[in-house]
Each structure stands twice: as C-alpha cells, then as structure tokens.
Amino acid sequence: MGTEPLFEKGEEIMSFFEILTIIIPSTLLTAAPLIFTSLGGMFSERSGIVNIGLEGLMAVGAFAAAVSTLGLEHSGLGDASPWIAILIAGAVGGLFSLIHAVVSISFRADQTVSGVALNFLAAGLTIFLVKLIFDGKGQTPYITHNIDKVDIPGLAKIPFLGPLFFQQVAYTSYIAILIAILCWFIVYKTPFGLRLRSVGEHPAAADTLGISVIKMRYIGVLLSGVLGGIGGAVYLVTITSNYNVTTIAGQGFLALAALVFGKWHPIGAMGASLFFGFAQALSITSQQIPYLDRLPSVFMLIAPYVLTLIVLTGFVGRAEAPKADGVPYIKGQR
C-alpha cells in the first residue's frame, strides 16, 4: 500500500476523459436494444397486459433479423440489408406477439403463464427453424453487413462533446432515443395515449365511455411485439451478428427490469435502459479503468437487478404498475 505511483493531476483528468470516451459510446450501444424493448413492454403494460414474453419477442426479432439480413445480403442489397432486416423483425415480432394477445386477452389466460409460454415457444421455434434452414446447425452464419459504429459526420468534430457522444456510435442508439421521445408524446399527448392508459387503469370506466378495451389491449400487445422484435434485431445487427441459443440471454428480462425501474414511463424506461447499458458497459470495461478494476465485475452485473428491487420497495419513490395490469377484462364483471 502506498507504493503505487499516484497520477499527476493533469494526467488523471486526461485519462478520465479517455475513460468516458470508451464508456459512453459503449453505453449507448448496449442501451439501444433495451430502450426499444422496454418501450414495447410499456405499451403492453399500459394497456393492462403484463408481458413477461419480452425475452421471447427479442429472440424472435433477433432470429428474423439474422435470417433476413443473410437473405438480403445474398441478393445484393449490401449495407441496406440490416436496416430492412430490422423492419422485417419488427413485423415478425408483431405477428408473434399476437399469440400472447389472443391467449391472454381473448382466452383470458393468466398473462404471466402466457408470457412464460411465449418465451418457451420462441426459444424452441427459433432454434428449430435455424436447424431447418442451415442444415442441422444450431446457429446461423455471421452476417457480414452489420450496423457499424461510426463517427457521425459534422457532429463528431465538435470539441469535447464530439468524442464523447458522436464518435464510434451506432445510428440505432440515436433512433432509439428519438423513438422514446415519440412514445412519450404518443402516450401522454394524444387521444390514443389517453385511451391506452385509461384501459390499463380502469377498463370498466373506459368501456362505458365507448372505448373498446379489447381493441386497445390488442394494439398495446402488438406494439410490444413490434418494438420487442426491433429491440432483438438491433441487438443482433449491432452487437452479436449471429443467432444462437444464447444470443438473447436475459436481455428481454433486463428490458422488463428497465420498464419497472423507469416506473412504466417512456422517458423513465429510456433512462433506466441507458443506466443498465452503462452498468453493462462498465462491467465489460472496468478492468481497464484504474480503481474500478479492483471492484469485482459481479457488482456491475447484478446492479441493475438489485437497484430495480430497491426501487420497487419504495425507498426511492414508489413504482406503481398500471392499476388493471394483469387483470383480464370481462364485460359486466365488477
């Protein structure tokens, strides 16, 4: 102790800045899939349908993105392939989420049960299809056109801010943040958003005012599928580049945690996703950072989950789920 040379003042500031230029872009990268997916969960839960199936929706999205990027690359679409693949994955995720919608809204199944089954189905179905498409192999080939980290033209040249926020980042991260703001506008500033929230808080009252509870809930779940699919796709085309059993290991549940940590609010979910992305980035890069390298990375890994538990206990402002979240709506029942 005490024998290690201390940093010079100037050197310390310099290296701290360098650390930030590693961590912030890495945070933005890992947060983007979480932002999309937690926003998806927000639409579903705001309409009153619990969605434990986010993990499965991400898996289906990632699978669809892998297969369609490979296909589009093959037909010569080049750099556009991953972008089109993200849209395809959104559509596939939406279709897949309809299973959850039918079973939990129309058949009135327990929503948690249906969500668990959705995760099961996604895990089985995607690997089953991968084996069918790629001759019995358990994983897809790597895509060659992924969405790379780039320096954003113009903005990257801004002194100080440029290296922090606009160098070595993927466009998807900025799109995710814009979509979060758009979602906030939709949920809080439009008639559609008001209807969605009313159906999740007090479906019977909404029904008497002529709002179709069933329709709104279907839309909520469908949006969660689309955004969850996009989240999975973004994870694939920016981070993993191929699909196998372990691709979406827990990202969907992490997005669910972000939704709860963000108190079911679009901007909150985005902030929580960024924070969880930061924790993930720190757990990966902490070994290169002075002082932090002595802290076991396990603390960074479990931080999102522990913090979510603490938020739920109400020590830092109570997180309340929409009132009718998880309760099937049966007309005429009080």
């Binding site: 079973v103 668990v116 089954a117 099961f120 189905l121 895990a123 089985g124 179905l125 089953f128």
Partner: peptide
C-alpha cells in the same frame, strides 16, 4: 427443439 415447441403449446 420440437419438444420445446410442444411443451410451450401445452402451456398455452
């Protein structure tokens, strides 16, 4: 993996 699909369907 077909078995997992069948199990998922049974839960549904």
């Amino acid at each position: 993996e077909l078995v997992n699909i069948i199990i998922a369907l049974i839960i549904f």
